[in-house]
Write a protein that binds this DNA or RNA. Structure first.
Length: 150
DNA sequence: GCCAACGTTGGC
DNA sequence: GCCAACGTTGGC
């Protein structure tokens, strides 16, 4: 069992949206490293920290779970989608995604600002300067520690 | 809205 | 293969 952090802009798709929909295909990832984590690293049942980015209160807003194996992101084939990739083909899809299902909304958002003040998690990928990955691994120890902060 | 950081693209 | 230009991310 592995742990992950996935970023979403709450204006686009928030933890409340996931709660309402129960399950969501995590489409639109167009970064190779993030894709590789989904394609090669994720297994059904892995834990996911649902992170709100690019908003008033950036931070971990809830928990989710990997709910499918990786499969081709349908939006890459759709010319009307903002995620359309003319360089990809159905025979050899470039972008993969997983489904994610709702587990819980945290009682409060554990903010980025707060995490920065805990030296125990200072090594997290999330906190690395200039980090822009939208999907990244989380170490088991960091996962446990963060859940203890709620 | 600004801008630092970083990934991608494309000319050479 | 180098690297400048460009686009995007995301905190502030």
């Amino acid at each position: 069992m592995n742990y992950w952090l996935m970023k979403s802009e709450p204006d686009t798709f928030s933890i409340d949206d996931l709660k309402r929909k129960k399950r969501e295909a995590w489409d639109g990832v167009r970064n190779y490293q993030a894709r590789n984590f989904m394609r090669d690293g994720m297994r059904v049942g892995d834990g996911v920290l649902f992170y709100h980015s690019n908003c008033a209160e950036p931070g971990i807003a809830g928990l989710a779970e990997v709910a499918s194996d990786a499969y081709p992101d349908p939006s890459q084939f759709d010319p009307k989608s903002q995620y359309f990739d003319p360089g990809s083909s159905r025979d050899n899809p470039r972008w993969m995604l997983v489904d994610v299902k709702f587990v819980k909304k945290l009682k409060r958002t554990i903010t980025l600002d707060e995490l920065k003040n805990h030296s125990a998690v200072a090594g997290m990928t999330l906190l690395r300067k200039g980090n822009r990955l939208s999907v990244m691994p989380v170490e088991a120890g960091d996962w446990k520690y963060i859940l203890g902060l709620e």
